[in-house]
Design a protein around this nucleic acid. Structure first.
Lengths: 342, 342
DNA sequence: ACTTGCTAAACAAACGTTTGCGTTCACAAT
DNA sequence: ATTGTGAACGCAAACGTTTGTTTAGCAAGT
C-alpha cells in the first residue's frame, strides 16, 4: 500500500535482466526479443509501473512543461486565453505551470526566475501593466528558452508575439455607427502610452476618412480606466456643443460606467445615446442597458495561437532561429443582444 | 550566449575541487572553509549558476509542485480559489500545475494520471459534476500523494476536505427575509443529489423552525440550473395560491434568470418580489435588478484553507497519518448594493 | 573451420545534485 | 612520541532513466 512506486530497475531485477533492456522493451526502441518484450510489458503492468518523469526530465533536459504568466485570472479575457493554452499544451503532452503577476513588475520578475529554476521548456507571457523593462525575459531567450508574448506585448520588435489589432475592429465599430446615421461620435480612449489606445484612435480617424467625413478631435477623450476617470471623460464629451449621439468606449467596463452615468442624466440608451465598446464580456448577456455592439478580441484564439507558436518554437529549438514570429489577429465587431427584458 | 547553464560540476572544475564541496559551499551545509565558501559563491555568481531543479527533484524525490484540478476557470468562484492557492503555494516555495476538467470525469481521470506522472507532491481538487467514482484519487493517496478536496467534495468520509456549509448561510438568508416581513418565501433549489442542495433545504426548514413558523413544502422547487429549468421552477412557484413575495435562488445566475422572468411578468424587484441568492458574483455590481442579498461562499478563503491543509500534509508526510482533515467554512449572508442607477 | 552478419542482451556513462562516510592534515592535549 | 580532535575536503553511491557501445551466441556463407 505505502510502497514506493515501481521503477525500471525493479522490473529488471524481477526478470533478471538489465534496466536498459527494460527501457527498450517499453519503448519498442532498440533490439529486443519479442518474447522478452512481452514479459517486460506484463511485469510492468503487474507492478503498475509508471515512468518517473523527473528522471526523464533530467536525462533529456526537457520538462515538457510550459510556464504561463499573466496579470489576472479573474479577468475573463485571461481565463479564456489560458484555457486555450492549456488545451493546446495538453494535446501536445505538455503541462502548464502558471502564475499571476497581479500587474506587479517585481512579482513578474520573481515568477520568471521561479519558472526558470523549474526548468520550464518555454514561457507564454502577457506582461504586467507596470512592466517597463524586459531583461528578465531576454535573459530567458538567450538561454534558449523561448518566450511568446500575447495580448499585452512589449513594444520591442525582437520577440515572438501574438496580439490583436484594434484598428480594424475600431474601423468597423465607427462605420457601424456611421451607417446607423450617427455623425457626432465620441470616443473614450485609454492611456495614450498603450499601443491599444493608439490603434483605437487610428481606427477612429480612418473610419471617418473612409466615408470622406472629417472628425472632431475634441470628440476623442481619455479615461484612466477607473470609474471616476470615466465620469470625467463623459463630462468632457457631453459639454461639446454638438453632443455625441454615440460613444465608442475603451472596453465593456468603461462602457458600463459610462452608461450608468448617462442614465443618471436621464438619457435613454440606444435612443438618446448609443454605445459600442470592446471585449465582449459574458456579463453583458445578463444586463439590460448595454453597448449595442462590441469589438471581440478573441482571447481563446490568441491563447491558441500563442501556444501553437511556442510549440513550434520548442520543436524547432535546435534549428537556427531566424527572425521572430509576429501574429496579428484581426479584431471584429459583433452585435450584442441584451440578456435583459428590454 | 547560447551556452548551457552552469552546473555545480563546472564550478568545481574551475576551482579544482569536488562537486560535493561546491554543493556544501552553496548550502552552508556540512563542513566547508569560509574562504573556500567565498570563492565558490563568487564563481557561482560569475557563471550565473542556478540549481537545476530537475536534478534536485530526482535526488530528493519531491518536485515542490502541487497539482490543481478544477472544473472551470471561467467561473469566478474558481478563479478566486486558485488565486488563493497560488498565493499560499508561492509563499511556501511551491509551484502550481493546473488543469481544468471541464466537468468531464474522463478528462479528470486523465489529468490525475498526468499529474501523477509529473510527480506532483500533492493535489488539490474540486471534482467534476459528473464524477461518480473516486478510485483515481484514492490510488494517489495510497501512493502517499496527499489529495485535498475543496468546495465540490466527494461524499465519502476518508478524504481531506474543505467546504462551505450552506446551511448557516441559508438560515441567515431566510431569517433576513422573515425579519423583513416576508412569510411566503420560495426556494429554487438545485439537483437533489448535491450536498449543497440538501444543506440549503435544511437551512430553509431550520430558519422557519427557529421562528416557530411552519413552512410550505410546495414552496421549495428544483431547477436543473439552466435558464429554462429556472423558468419552469418560477412557474411552479408563482402558481401557488399564496404567492411568494421573496425567493431564495440557488445561485446568482439562477437569481438573474428568475429576476428576468419576474420582470417580464411585470413584477417590480424588491417591491413585488425580493430575491436572495448565493455566490456573490462580481457582475452583480454592474446591474440594476439584483438579489438584495447573497450568501458568500468565500472562494478565496476556501482555496487558502485547502492550500494550507495540503502544505501541512506535505510537511508531515513521514509522520503516520491519523484521520482526515475536514474543514468547514461558514457561509455568510451579505447585503448587496446595486451598481446600477436605481 | 573460419569469417561474417545478425539478434538479443548487458554494460556503462550520462543527466546534476545531495549526502553518508571516509580520508587527510594540522594542531593541541596527553 | 603518541593519541585525540576537529576542520576541510574528496569519494562514491544514489535518485530513475536513456542510449551508445560492447559482448555473447548462433546461423549462414565461404
Amino acid at each position: 500500500m505505502n510502497s514506493k512506486p515501481a521503477t525500471i530497475k525493479e522490473i529488471a531485477r524481477r526478470l533478471g535482466i538489465s534496466p536498459s533492456s527494460v527501457s527498450r522493451g517499453l519503448h519498442d526502441h532498440g533490439s529486443i526479443g519479442s518474447a522478452m518484450k512481452e514479459k517486460i510489458r506484463t511485469v510492468a503492468q503487474e507492478l503498475n509501473y509508471e515512468p518517473n518523469q523527473t528522471a526523464i526530465f533530467l536525462q533529456k533536459g526537457k520538462t515538457h512543461t510550459i510556464g504561463v504568466i499573466l496579470p489576472e485570472l479573474s479577468e475573463s479575457f485571461f481565463s479564456s486565453a489560458i484555457t486555450a493554452i492549456e488545451d493546446i499544451a495538453n494535446k501536445k503532452n505538455y503541462q502548464v505551470m502558471f502564475a499571476q503577476s497581479h500587474d506587479d513588475e517585481a512579482k513578474e520578475k520573481l515568477l520568471v526566475e521561479k519558472m526558470k529554476s523549474h526548468r520550464v521548456d518555454g514561457l507564454i507571457v502577457s506582461v504586467a501593466k507596470s512592466t517597463s523593462s524586459y531583461e528578465h525575459f531576454t535573459k530567458l531567450s538567450s538561454q534558449n528558452i523561448p518566450v511568446v508574448f500575447f495580448d499585452r506585448i512589449p513594444s520591442v520588435t525582437n520577440v515572438h508575439s501574438v496580439a490583436c489589432d484594434m484598428e480594424t475592429g475600431t474601423i468597423q465599430a465607427v462605420q457601424y455607427l456611421l451607417k446607423k446615421g450617427h455623425r457626432a461620435i465620441g470616443m473614450i480612449n485609454g492611456p495614450s502610452n498603450l499601443l491599444a489606445s493608439t490603434q483605437r484612435k487610428e481606427g477612429y480617424i480612418k473610419a471617418f476618412g473612409s466615408q470622406r467625413l472629417k472628425y472632431d478631435p475634441s470628440m476623442i477623450v481619455t479615461s484612466d480606466l477607473t470609474e471616476n476617470g470615466t465620469l470625467i471623460a463623459m463630462e468632457q464629451l457631453l459639454i461639446i456643443k454638438r453632443k455625441p449621439t454615440a460613444i465608442v468606449a475603451f472596453n465593456d467596463y468603461i462602457s458600463l460606467y459610462a452608461i450608468k452615468y448617462a442614465r443618471k442624466l436621464g438619457l435613454v440608451i440606444n435612443k438618446d445615446i448609443e454605445f459600442v465598446s470592446y471585449s465582449n464580456l459574458p456579463l453583458i448577456h445578463y444586463m439590460d442597458h448595454i453597448p449595442s455592439a462590441s469589438v471581440e478580441q478573441h482571447p481563446y484564439l490568441q491563447g491558441q495561437k500563442a501556444a501553437d507558436m511556442l510549440m513550434d518554437l520548442l520543436s524547432n529549438k535546435d534549428t537556427e532561429q531566424q527572425g521572430f514570429y509576429r501574429v496579428i489577429i484581426e479584431s471584429e465587431l459583433v452585435e450584442n443582444r441584451t440578456g435583459g427584458i428590454l
